[in-house]
Design a protein around this nucleic acid. Structure first.
Lengths: 120, 120
DNA sequence: TGAACATATGAACAACCGTTCATATGTAAG
DNA sequence: CTTACATATGAACGGTTGTTCATATGTTCA
């Protein structure tokens, strides 16, 4: 028999309550899901993706990345701040220049899983 | 000696030309990068992520997902359309209901790579 | 110190995104 | 045919995002 949950956001009948309960228990908690979504969102922009790809191949300064991607220094710098705050890259200062590199190996792994999907 | 690229979008000096050339050759072409960014963007929203996680555990109809996530049927339906167009889920009609499931195994792999990153 | 350069940052703006609301489509049962 | 239900969809709205422009910070060198 179908059960009506009657919560205030969804008034439709719940058709498969047992399945829902089972899935509900497996579902990671909201915070973890938000973190994961935030991670994917960070990778969800071509500029950031190209920056990360480049840094994965070599340590580069802001000016290098700017030239490599053919974009303004400002745009790159803003994105680097984003990536730094997301802990996806780290920076090292050397004189006037700041060199960036990936902050950990996980990023590379996620990259490759994604590439497999796109290539197929 | 430093080379000035002098293209119209970046007028700063290129400091490490050889490194840039090397990275430039490895860089996947723009279309592929855009596709990959689009894939990550699809995963970059908590609602879509939770839908995908749920479908990964069980085939569900729209109404089930709506109840499971505590969100309106309309919001879920819009997101499902998004996911269907991104070829991340497929649908199967059975009477009045439409059942959704993941469209391929790659999504699961990308998921897990991401979870590893977040958990650590 | 002052000029030149590398990088960072704040404001502003257009484009995009996720949800809501109202309503349409499609199916099953009476 | 009519009602009830499951899903889909278009318009609209507020919030977010990526870039640009102008400018600030910090470093090196003369």
């Amino acid at each position: 028999m179908n059960v009506n949950t009657n919560d205030d956001r969804c008034s439709v009948n719940v058709i498969h309550e047992e399945v829902i309960d089972r899935v509900s228990q497996k579902m990671p908690d909201g915070d973890k899901m938000n973190d994961l979504a935030q991670l994917y969102k960070s990778l969800g922009d071509p500029t950031r993706l190209r920056i990360l790809f480049a840094l994965n191949a070599a340590e580069l300064c802001v000016c290098d990345i700017s030239a490599l991607l053919g974009m303004t220094q400002s745009a790159i710098s803003h994105q680097l701040r984003f990536l730094r705050q997301a802990r996806l890259v780290k920076s090292r200062k050397e004189g006037k220049m700041v060199f960036y590199s990936p902050s950990d190996r996980h990023v590379t792994e996620i990259f490759e899983a994604g590439l497999d999907h796109v290539i197929e």
